[in-house]
């Protein structure tokens, strides 16, 4: 039977790796130290597989058929997908191993439980969603096999935050019920407040970020799942990525998040946060 041995959440702003020099040095170093802390905790958890949850920014999927949720069941994933993207993020393109067997088990469990994610058995490329955090968290060549899960946080209509939380709760049961990976870690990436491609870009809603972090720190993420659309829109289109954190929070239902860093960094356009869950 599988069990969750680590649970982490981080922002994934392209600036973190792509234009670090634009940030204040002290803030940047706090963020980097926090990533290093998570890297150590992830390594100490010795996972057999890493379930990584994020949005994707039209790198693999398009509006002709955009999934609300998609589970990766491929043997491998590439990211960043192009030399231009590589230069933009300033991270080298790598091929990441996929845990196809675990992905398939999670997918089948989801269907049995009344969830209907799509699946991807190839050509799902990673953009900043995973390439930015993996630059810090998976620096070596000995890579843990991945099961990426994508949620739509980029083009309305979006799946409800309540559904994301429930998806996370189902995900925990799925991990516990399968036998192909004993030790499973989960990483969610996205948020916190930010605007991408919009007139407000560069603004950060620190009050909103603080409310989110307070509830997560108290194990009360479920309350965020009940917030109105307006309450989340007040923190920008990028704040819709809070869905990824809620999926993680659902999987560790009621557990408390511990924040290693929170830095509002306008040149990175993002309220930048890095956290672990107390399991």
């Amino acid at each position: 039977m599988g069990r969750i041995v680590g649970a982490f959440a981080t922002s994934h702003s392209p600036g973190i790796t792509g234009f670090p020099e634009m940030a204040n040095e002290e803030q940047r170093n706090k963020v980097y130290r926090a990533f290093e802390q998570v890297r150590k905790e992830l390594e100490a958890a010795r996972p057999d597989a890493l379930v990584c949850i994020s949005v994707e920014h039209f790198t693999s999927f398009f509006l002709n058929n955009y999934p609300a949720f998609c589970i990766g069941i491929a043997d491998s994933y590439v990211g960043p997908p192009t030399p231009e993207f590589e230069r933009f993020l300033r991270v080298e393109t790598r091929t990441f191993p996929g845990h196809a067997a675990l992905g398939t088990e999670l997918l089948k469990f989801a269907y049995r439980e009344g969830f209907d994610p799509s699946f991807s058995s190839g050509d799902m490329a990673f953009d900043e969603n995973f390439c930015v955090p993996f630059h810090f968290l998976l620096p070596g060549d000995d890579l843990v096999p991945l099961v990426p899960i994508i949620v739509n946080g980029v083009q309305p209509p979006l799946p409800t935050r309540r559904r994301c939380y429930e998806f996370g709760r189902m995900l925990a049961r799925a991990i516990e019920s399968q036998t192909v990976a004993d030790r499973v870690a989960i990483l969610a990436t996205g948020g916190l407040s930010h605007w991408v491609g919009a007139p407000e870009s560069g603004q950060i809603n620190t009050d909103w970020d603080q409310r989110v972090m307070e509830l997560l720190s108290q194990g009360r993420a479920e309350e965020i799942a009940e917030w109105s659309d307006e309450e989340v829109e007040a923190a920008g289109n990028g704040a819709e990525e809070i869905r990824t954190w809620l999926m993680l929070a659902g999987a560790v239902h009621g557990r408390k998040f511990r924040f290693h860093a929170y830095e509002p960094i306008p040149p990175w356009l993002t309220g930048t946060a890095v956290a672990s869950v107390e399991l």
Binding site: H57, F58, L63, V154, Q155, W195, V196, G197, A198, P199, N237
Partner: peptide
């Protein structure tokens, strides 16, 4: 800005 206000997705527009 005009395209954004007309409903263009800001991610797709920026890229």
């Amino acid at each position: 800005r005009k395209l954004y206000q007309a409903g263009a997705n800001p991610y797709i527009l920026l890229f």
